[in-house]
């Protein structure tokens, strides 16, 4: 999982899906997710998957990245399905297809919508501590990832993490230990900054979205139609 790369795709992409309003994409994604999960037969699941691929293809050349991300839940679903493959291959197949569709919906949403916009929507239904931690965790990740990369580079320049897997894992443990110590100092700095800025129980989001355009209505209509068709196939 490369959060940096995902952020890059979401922030700098120029596709029709990037132009759509975040809340519209979230609503359309939720509807397509419901359609993916509601499919009960392999054919219905395949139809939902095809509809999701159509939706995702609006992100043009980013589609392959979203598909690659969607293969991760397929691996886990495959693991669950493995024990059923002989007793009920159809259900195993349905489960795997459903997980692909659901994964592709999430991957498409997050590669075409900046995290901040998605978090802004999530934070409306979350307690302040959770939503604030979500925002700050995302920000902290990018600070810490740079530090980790520097440390790993230093380890490589000094001859690598070790020959055996045991040595390598111990080295990784020590590298992470250094990052954790630095993160404790970073936490203290963040605390002081929050006090100075007058943090009062919640980080306020000042995000305002323009009114929906035809593309936004089209996305919602498409997602609703797919859900309706999948429900009809049940």
């Amino acid at each position: 999982m490369d959060v940096q790369f995902i952020d890059e795709l979401a922030a700098n992409g120029r596709t029709p899906l990037h132009d759509a309003l975040p809340w519209v994409k979230i609503a359309a994604s939720a509807t397509l997710l419901a359609a993916s999960i509601a499919a009960r037969t392999p054919s219905a699941a395949a139809a939902a998957a095809a509809a999701v691929v159509m939706f995702a293809s609006a992100s043009r050349n980013q589609l392959r990245h979203a598909v690659a991300m969607a293969l991760y839940p397929v691996f886990f679903a495959g693991l669950f399905a493995l024990s059923w493959i002989r007793s009920n291959p159809l259900l195993a197949l349905t489960v795997v297809i459903r997980s692909f569709s659901a994964g592709l919906v999430a991957a498409t949403l997050i590669t075409t919508t900046p995290f901040v916009d998605v978090f802004a929507a999530i934070s409306r239904v979350m307690p302040a501590i959770v939503s604030d931690a979500l925002f700050m965790a995302y920000r902290s990740f990018f600070i810490l990832v740079d530090e980790l990369q520097d440390l790993l580079r230093a380890v490589r320049l000094r001859g690598g993490a070790g020959r055996s897997i045991m040595e390598q894992l111990r080295t990784y443990g020590q590298v992470l230990g250094v990052v954790i110590l630095h993160s404790a100092d970073m936490t203290e700095r963040m605390y002081r900054v929050m006090i100075v800025r007058g943090y009062s129980q919640r980080i306020q989001s000042a995000r305002e979205w323009p009114p929906p355009r035809p593309l936004d209505y089209l996305l919602i209509a498409y997602a609703m139609t797919v859900l309706g068709l999948v429900l009809a196939l049940r």
């Binding site: 999982m1 959060v3 501590i129 604030d132 931690a133 979500l134 925002f135 700050m136 965790a137 995302y138 920000r139 902290s140 990740f141 600070i143 810490l144 990832v145 980790l148 992470l176 990052v179 954790i180 993160s183 404790a184 970073m186 936490t187 963040m190 605390y191 929050m194 943090y199």
Partner: peptide, 14 residues
């Protein structure tokens, strides 16, 4: 509390 939770979450992701 918030920065500590955020940092630990970031470390898990890292």
């Amino acid at each position: 509390v918030v920065p500590r939770i955020a940092t630990l979450s970031a470390l898990m992701l890292l």
